[in-house]
Design a binder for these strands. Structure first.
Lengths: 313, 313
DNA sequence: AAAACCGATTAATTCGTTTTCATAATGTTG
DNA sequence: CAACATTATGAAAACGAATTAATCGGTTTT
């Protein structure tokens, strides 16, 4: 493979001058520039990005840690991240984690090994304190409320909108509310926001019986409905964690021949639109764009994006 | 930052021995190994991936070129690609193209600049011959029939299943069929497969009037229905290019107060399942896994994954 | 006892850039 | 015309590894 030294030798100039030409820098005479450019074209030379990264001490890579890549939350987030990365000439590296601590740690180590300039955790299994520790090796952005971790964060401001949703239910006469969550309250900021909102509206933490966790897919929604029915619990309404999941819940009740509670979904998905369900749009694309911006700027800010309750569709 | 030389100096061994220790290689005595390991731990040393890549002449990066990252076809493909990449310890770099020739060329150049070891084109705007030219700089895999390009390919074997779908329609008495496509027949292998299947079943190329192109989203499906109605054309059935789009078509006809033709969707999406539409599952995750395998192995094979017509759901 | 072999180790080269520092040539000012 | 900038260029030193060839005891073959 032809390198910068070949170009320099054949053009009869020094390596540094060639470097200046290919990087569009100053202090090269027009004549020299065109002479070198000619040789570059003739030899079909292209600089080696890896060598360049090593020399500059920067890769322009941003690693994006995500538990599963086929989930709409992550898809939308990724869309925002790649959009912003593209504009800033950064590269997005996808890192599957499945909430596996070893994997997450391995990605954090990647920061130390200079594989990425920055890391965005769309979600995480490790404690925030551990993520925070790795900030010394590169900037780390999370997509949830940072608590007391000091981590820069871009996230959907869920709590307020969850409160709006629950107030909406309450004022429409729905008293007994079921809550579906992707992960247990103890480990998930999203689930905590749900519980906090519940407390704000109903004056007490949600009891474990009204919550079902580990609900990710439509099938999980069906399962949740069955769980509620088995437990012999009656609900006026259920706040599901996605529209697809709400549809699953509806099916679960229908399959059991039971009346379907009033449902509110999330994510503003097609399924919810077709079923005319109220939903919550979290504008994750926007969240992703901000997350990337934080990652590359190194700013230690917290950006909360307002989400929106959509009751008519 | 502490580097391999620091470790060598402090441990009292040469750089090459340290290198052998951190790479788990032979020809290091147990005593030396543990002595060096101790220093590595003390200094909290981690090897620099960029330097390693440069020295080895390999990055373990696979670039994935995709027109838009929020489309289910690409989402599923990406899911397969990352799954396989993860298993093989490769990294997936997302490259947005929006079918822009300059961008695609830039990514091809990335291969020359050694930014990626291989490139997967989930779709492309540039002619295949141009992609083929860049194979000299690294392996390139496409996700469609390679024609005479000689490019390795993993793709959904659409034509046969499209034929199945059209035969299904024909045998059920549907004669006048409309076809929806994401891109014009001239530039898209998928659209060509549709046209080929049509010819196999109905004995002639589909006329331009029965095709609507540039149909990507549900809203495009609605638009397509209106286009057909405006043209004053009547169809017994329409083969849509996704379930979501089929739903859009249905809405378009309903909004105009017209009877909805029989619809077949694609992608096996939730929307189609809910509406009990026949659909075609292309198993894109599997396609993605094979594509990555081809990319890193460098095999110049062609792998066609059979898709499946689902008429009962 | 010379020749061959083997495991452990090191010195030196290589990968392909960017960047700093030095120097020469040219231009500008008082 | 001396003093001083400014522009143009090159030599050499990073950047941080992997790898090749060489060396050196020690052991085994012949």
């Amino acid at each position: 493979m032809t390198n910068i030294r070949d170009v320099a030798r054949i053009a009869g100039y020094s390596v540094s001058t060639v470097s200046r030409v290919i990087n569009q820098q100053n202090y090269v005479s027009a004549a020299t520039r065109s002479a070198i450019q000619k040789v570059v074209d003739e030899l079909d030379y292209a600089p080696n990005d890896v060598a360049r990264d090593l020399s500059r001490g920067k890769t322009f890579n941003v690693g994006v840690v995500l538990p599963h890549e086929d989930h709409p939350y992550f898809t939308q987030l990724i869309h925002g991240i790649t959009t912003a990365a593209f504009a800033a000439k950064y590269h997005v590296v996808l890192l599957s984690s499945r909430y596996d601590a070893d994997l997450e740690l391995n990605y954090l180590e990647g920061l130390r090994r200079k594989a990425y300039d920055a890391l965005i955790f769309t979600s995480h299994g490790l404690p925030l304190s551990q993520l925070a520790y790795y900030q010394q090796y590169g900037s780390i952005v999370i997509c949830e409320h940072p608590r007391n971790s000091g981590l820069p964060a871009a996230y959907a401001h869920r709590r307020t909108t969850y409160r709006d949703a629950l107030v909406y239910l309450k004022t429409h006469g729905y008293q007994r509310i079921g809550l579906l969550m992707s992960r247990p309250i103890a480990v998930s900021a999203t689930s905590q926001a749900t519980a906090d909102a519940y407390q704000m509206v109903f004056g007490q933490r949600p009891s474990p019986e009204i919550c079902v966790t580990d609900v990710i897919t439509l099938a999980d929604g069906e399962r949740a409905a069955k769980t509620y029915l088995q437990r012999g619990q009656h609900f006026d309404a259920i706040l599901a964690n996605s529209d697809d999941i709400a549809i699953g819940v509806s099916r679960g009740y229908q399959a059991a021949g039971e009346p379907v509670p009033f449902l509110i979904g999330q994510e503003h998905q097609l399924s919810g639109e077709l079923a005319h369900l109220p939903t919550i749009d979290h504008y994750f694309k926007k969240v992703g764009e901000h997350a990337l911006q934080l990652a590359i700027s190194g700013e230690k800010k917290t950006i909360a994006i307002d989400s929106r309750l959509i009751t008519e569709q």
